[in-house]
Nucleic acid binder design. Structure first.
Lengths: 342, 342
DNA sequence: TCAAAAGTGTTATCCTTACACCCATGT
DNA sequence: ACATGGGTGTAAGGATAACACTTTTGA
């Protein structure tokens, strides 16, 4: 007798309202009402394509009509832990969708969550997130030390690389690597839960989601951050007309970084990504801003139009490498196009 | 009664021998002995993870033990055409694997194919591939004209963008976009076959594979080309010790471009990607070359270590845009780090 | 001695970064 | 008037691209 195999489709639906990136979640009927991504099984008879199936599910569960959709990853490892339950194995195909606003999915019980409530260590807009040094780094260090000599060194190297500690420049796109590391180190609630534990996760380790949904979200955020660089995806999240500040804040919200304003504007304009409409937005405080729109022609002009984030190049400015003991002081992430972060 | 759903795992196994990128294919038992990627169904009871399942299948079908493996994409649309057959629907999860050499999979009936026999239009190392202007561009133009006025213009724009015609700079990574376009335009054998047609594909449109395997390969090549830029994946394809020329030729083989030698060497070295061993390779013809090895420490030093290919930036050098009629003369792809192509 | 490939040095150009400053509105 | 955010100019630094040239082997 073979294990029944169900194909699930999950959606990471992202919007940016004001300055916060949000993700749509539903409350699961069963269990303790855990939060979960909208998802449902594939019906091979009805759904002609996977993407259509996904759109259907999202419509019925949240009332939302999706626009931009992209496949993320297929997760198929046997569900961790859950020992004894012996539930049907699920293969889940995850998608990323971008929508323009917090619409009105409230009626259906779905709601928006701040992405950085799930990943507090990913938001560097106010400078280095305090959770890293206060909670995560110590937990990770203990975990690394817990292994034998060889393995401990390997773990430490991995921590340095993915979190950008110890003089290693960080990479904003390695969201999944960071989450997986925290999972392995049992620093996030899911790894405790999946082992049948009952202890509460430490504060600062972020909101727990059902199943492996936070992992899926980590893949989504990493992918989205990467894509910002070379595809004009931000515009999927903005209204047709927007000011350059709105654009910048949306990018910053996703990248989790504060960017240098003057250069941002110039880069965007000289990249040909936007064009001014004569109209201006009379704003709160300060000079009215011009309204811009996305310039579609850029697709013909450039092979990979994107917004240009810092990172990706050389080693950090301060010379070779910091002393092994001196971790807390390091900013980790590169500071090229970054604002001083106040 | 519901359609049976089978989960298939497919592997795009890539190696680079001398100067040609190769992919491993097997001859399918049924049908007319079509060539196909190694693949097999997932056994939910035996295989704990998808990746392990894949490794098992590859081992039994080709005798190969895989090293680097990465998930590519999950294809699940109802199999095109095949009208009447009403076969079980298959969901196939595709993986990319990199191996070091053409091993000895001959015994098992598997064999290596030159990737550019499948995508002749992707190899720009000898300059612009003649197939583009001789075969593909005319076919595509006819296809575009076949649509109504509005749609025809849209099709033409799409052609320009993905093939880099008409002054639009090309992007070596859009391998899938180009293949899909050719499929839609019925320029490749698969689209004829999937519609039940029997006519032979035009010469220059590349070797046909079973099912959607060439599409999968297109995804793989595009992904690999992209990854070259920011992850040290080439080294998975090279022996532990190699000369800089070997490295360059491997990169060129995958990127389908010829690179400027002097700058390539400098970039690689100053990126800290390799380190010299004192040893030298006494070669055929010319001065002996030093043997290098991959410098693992680069992972700690840089957020995204890769080889730096041309492209990705601005519009082509020759000013605004070429006249609409003047297509054949355009090089299309950018020529920044490119050799004059002789 | 010559061909072929390896390897080095130098310069021009262009993108990115940083800094300084002016503009337009609401209170 | 001044605070606030919008918007522009310009110069320094750094990375790439292009070019010229030297070194070391085998035939």
């Amino acid at each position: 007798m073979s294990t029944p195999l169900v194909i699930g489709l999950s959606a990471v639906i992202v919007a940016v309202t004001d300055e916060t990136p949000r993700v749509l979640v539903v409350r699961r009927p069963g269990a303790a009402g855990e939060l979960a991504l909208p998802s449902g099984p594939l019906d091979p008879d009805r759904d002609r394509t996977l993407e259509l199936a996904l759109r259907n599910w999202v419509r019925t569960q949240t009332g939302l009509e999706l626009g931009y959709v992209e496949q993320l990853y297929t997760f198929g490892d046997r569900v961790r832990g859950r020992s004894g339950e012996e539930e049907a194995r699920e293969l889940s195909i995850a998608y990323l969708a971008l929508v323009r606003e917090g619409g009105a999915p409230e009626a259906t019980g779905a709601g928006w969550l701040d992405v950085y409530d799930l990943f507090p260590w990913e938001d560097w807009r106010q400078g280095r997130p305090p959770e890293i040094d206060r909670v995560l780094a110590p937990l990770l260090a203990r975990w690394a030390d817990g292994a034998g000599g060889e393995a401990a060194a390997a773990r430490r190297e991995r921590i340095d690389i993915v979190f950008g500690l110890g003089g290693t420049p960080g990479d904003g796109e390695r969201v999944l690597d960071r989450y997986e590391l925290l999972y392995e180190a049992r620093a996030v609630g899911e790894s405790v839960r999946d082992r049948g534990g009952r202890s509460r996760p430490a504060p600062g380790t972020g909101q727990v989601l059902a199943l492996d949904h936070r992992r899926i979200l980590a893949v989504a955020l990493g992918r989205l951050r990467g894509k910002l660089r070379y595809r004009p995806v931000v515009f999927e999240l903005l209204p047709p007309l927007f000011t350059l500040s709105q654009l910048q804040r949306a990018v910053e919200a996703l990248a989790g970084l504060r960017l240098h304003q003057q250069n941002f504007r110039r880069l965007i304009e000289q990249a040909g990504l936007v064009e001014g409409t004569g109209r201006r937005e009379t704003r709160t405080g300060g000079r009215p801003a011009e309204l811009f729109r996305f310039r579609r022609e850029v697709l013909r002009e450039r092979p990979a139009p994107g917004v240009g984030l810092p990172g990706r190049r050389e080693a950090p400015p301060g010379g070779e490498r910091e002393g092994a003991g001196e971790r807390a002081g390091s900013r980790g992430m590169r500071a090229r196009n970054r604002e001083p972060a106040g």
